[in-house]
Design a protein around this nucleic acid. Structure first.
Lengths: 226, 226
DNA sequence: CGCGCGTTTGAGCATGCTCAACATGAGTGG
DNA sequence: CCACTCATGTTGAGCATGCTCAAACGCGCG
């Protein structure tokens, strides 16, 4: 892992992300001031539970998973962050240590925003505060939704749900490409890889065809009924 | 359910809660401006998934649970809010409809803060924005922690965890009273009531004695090992 | 006293995990 | 371009956990 300054491409990705979308340019620039970039190989651990966190992390490219650990080295994914996602902000704002581990799933470029500086900006710049408030609300809702899903849905239902979440508004049939290995999807859905595989098998009879990372849905209705 | 203005006792509870703890008096007053109070019987539904939400809710007294529903009327608790807790804020700030149902578990007094007004205050008053940001961070962390627990811990482990969370810092033995029925605890922990009962049975051999709502822990170490 | 709710206990069952074997596929080097 | 290799994905069998359904229990309250 090595650290450097932002390239102009990095800046473009950052400024184009949801967080910055509704932020006036000066405020956005202020947030980026002092940010650094680091590159990580797949499997690199960005931080461990209990680490002191001094930065808010932003995925410029790649994929990062946030996970907790239990007895015997068992791991459970809490969230998976694609390009454009922000994480680590809760620990920073609460001035706490990390409550989970973070690991790069793909080779990743990560922007690190200066934590204390961001805290100050939040207190001073209403626009920044509002942007982060919205972001936290969205994160919170995602997590709550996932919690409810875990408790309500079977494996095939969760997978069906995920697939429907990937598909555009109303088309009855469509195809898309998984943005990561099935491995990772299984973790995200709280399933063992074998369970995911079997869930896909089950869904085949509802018109879901899986070829590698390509998912083809023939009958949206059937999926929704699941 | 009937609606009225805040009593001075209501104000006291609100101003003493975590949200207002670090808020200067004028800002706190501004937040409370226009708030109303409503009383609810146990089992009353405050709102359903999909309802338009115009208020941020605050539990002055009683207990409220937030839950999602699945096929066949199955329910899964997302959170349980005791006195002093705030909820509904995510839907309000994102200007969305409710993503879950809320139901009074005990007879409850609920303060309703005017949503649009609060949004405006957040944008104008840095103190208010910061207070809500912290609150959202705490909520988010709780939810994430629960998600990880669900996926990592068995029923007895979750119960042991809950018990340890209720106990003061370091005492090796202690006793406390459940703040609600076992029923509700089961929901909060994502268990069927029967599973909770059996978990308590299991924990008996680790020095946990349950008499009605009274929980007595003889050996804290044994619980942590679980 | 008896009704009703909350809790406990029991038995059977479904879901998903573990472990292991096997298949597939991508990447590497000859 | 093929062969080899390692990682990834699939399939199978057995098992553990927790859910469902049903019945008994206990306690509070009319």
């Amino acid at each position: 892992m090595k650290t450097s300054r932002l390239t102009s491409n990095d800046r473009a990705v950052l400024l184009g992300s949801r967080l910055f979308a509704n932020l006036p340019a000066p405020a956005a620039e202020a947030v980026l001031e002092g940010a650094t970039i680091s590159r990580h190989e797949a499997q690199d651990v960005l931080f461990h539970q209990g680490d002191a966190i001094e930065h808010v992390f932003f995925v410029v490219s790649g994929l990062v998973r946030l996970y907790g650990t239990g007895k015997g080295g068992r791991e459970a994914d809490i969230a998976v962050f694609p390009r454009g996602a922000l994480f680590g902000e809760k620990a920073v704002f609460l001035d706490q240590r990390a409550t989970a581990h973070a690991q790069a799933v793909h080779p990743s470029i990560i922007a690190k925003l200066d934590g204390p500086r961001l805290c100050r900006l939040v207190r001073e710049e209403a626009d920044v505060a509002w942007a982060l408030l919205e972001l936290l609300c969205r994160h919170g809702q995602m997590t709550e939704k996932r919690l409810a899903e875990d408790r309500l849905l079977t494996a095939p239902q969760r997978v069906a749900n995920y697939i429907l979440g990937q598909c555009p508004g109303d088309s009855p049939a469509f195809t898309f490409r998984l943005p990561f290995q099935k491995n990772v999807l299984a973790g995200k859905l709280g399933l063992a890889p074998e369970a995911l595989s079997r869930a896909f098998s089950t869904l085949r009879q509802s018109g879901v065809i899986v070829k590698g990372r390509l998912i083809e849905i023939r009958d949206r209705e059937a999926l929704e009924r699941f």
